[in-house]
Structures are given as C-alpha cells and as structure tokens.
C-alpha cells in the first residue's frame, strides 16, 4: 500500500509539468530498480520451478512479488520519463494502448501463476510459469530497446 502511494506521488509529480524533470529522472532510476527486482524474483522462481533448488516453500513469496510488481509496471512509464538512461522504446508512449495491453497480459499471467502456486498443484506449474515469462519476453521484444 505504501509502495502504491509512493508510486502514485511520483507519477503525480511527473505529470504536473516539465519543471519536475528531476523527478522524472528519479522515476527512471526507480523503474530500473523495480524491473531488476522483477527479474530477480523471476530468476529465483525459475530455479525452484525447474527443481534446481529445494526451496519450494519460498515459491509463493516470489510468485506474490511478481504479481504485485506486475501491477505496478504500467504506472512506471509516465509521460516525460522517456529520456536519459532508459531502454524503454518510444513505442511505450506512441503505442500506449498496445503497451497497456501487454502490461495487462503480463498481470493476468502473473495472477494465474500465483494461483497455481497457491493451489499446490505442481503439475501445471512449469507451464504456467512459462506463460508468464513468455509475456515478459513478448513485452521486452516490442517495447525494450537492445541499446544499453
């Protein structure tokens, strides 16, 4: 909840005018960190799902975090945060509907995976996780530049 208010505050700041560009830069830095955290949970969950480590009781934590972060991502790309050190492509803003749709698909996939994890049914876990990571890849393919 606290996280959401912070994000909301930052988005508000970013959208109130160009004089807030310093805050836009902060949003970009924050966004980079949040996406890295998303990747961190994805990498950790993948090692549990693949049976590489035995921390099955921690999968729910990662699945919950992934779902929660997926709910934030759409808000992390406000207008005026399309400069500086970001790999976000122009299409994030120029094809906003398509971007929002990709974010929504990711949220649904993350929600579905969390449900599967919480159900304790291991048989569909790998498949559901694959659907989630495919939606990450699909969005990166369209909306993230290869330039560093």
């Amino acid at each position: 909840m606290k996280m959401k208010s912070i994000v909301f505050g930052m988005v508000l700041l970013a959208t109130t005018g160009t004089t807030w560009s310093a805050d836009s830069e902060e949003i970009i830095k924050y966004r980079n960190s949040v996406m890295k955290a998303y990747a961190g949970h994805t990498g950790a969950a993948s090692r549990i799902v693949r049976g590489k480590v035995d921390y099955t009781d921690q999968l729910s934590l990662h699945a919950t975090a992934m779902r929660d972060i997926s709910m934030l991502t759409g808000d992390l790309f406000p207008a005026d945060s399309d400069f500086g050190e970001t790999r976000a492509k122009d299409e994030v803003w120029s094809k906003r509907d398509e971007f929002n749709e990709a974010v929504k698909e990711n949220q649904q996939a993350a929600e579905a995976f969390l449900k599967v994890v919480n159900s304790g049914d291991a048989s569909t876990q790998a498949e559901s996780f694959k659907a989630l990571t495919d939606s990450c890849k699909g969005c990166h393919d369209k909306f993230r530049s290869e330039e560093e």
């Binding site: 998303y38 990747a39 961190g40 949970h41 994805t42 990498g43 950790a44 993948s46 694959k130 990571t133 495919d134 990450c136 890849k137 699909g138 969005c139 990166h140 393919d141 993230r144 530049s145 290869e146």
Partner: peptide, 15 residues
Amino acid sequence: SGISLSGDAAGGKMA
C-alpha cells in the same frame, strides 16, 4: 524460455 541466469527476459533480436 529466454530467461537468463539473472532472471531477465530476452528482448529484441534474441527474443
């Protein structure tokens, strides 16, 4: 899957 060791999902040409 396109998921690297760090958990990042591939994009661009490699995707």
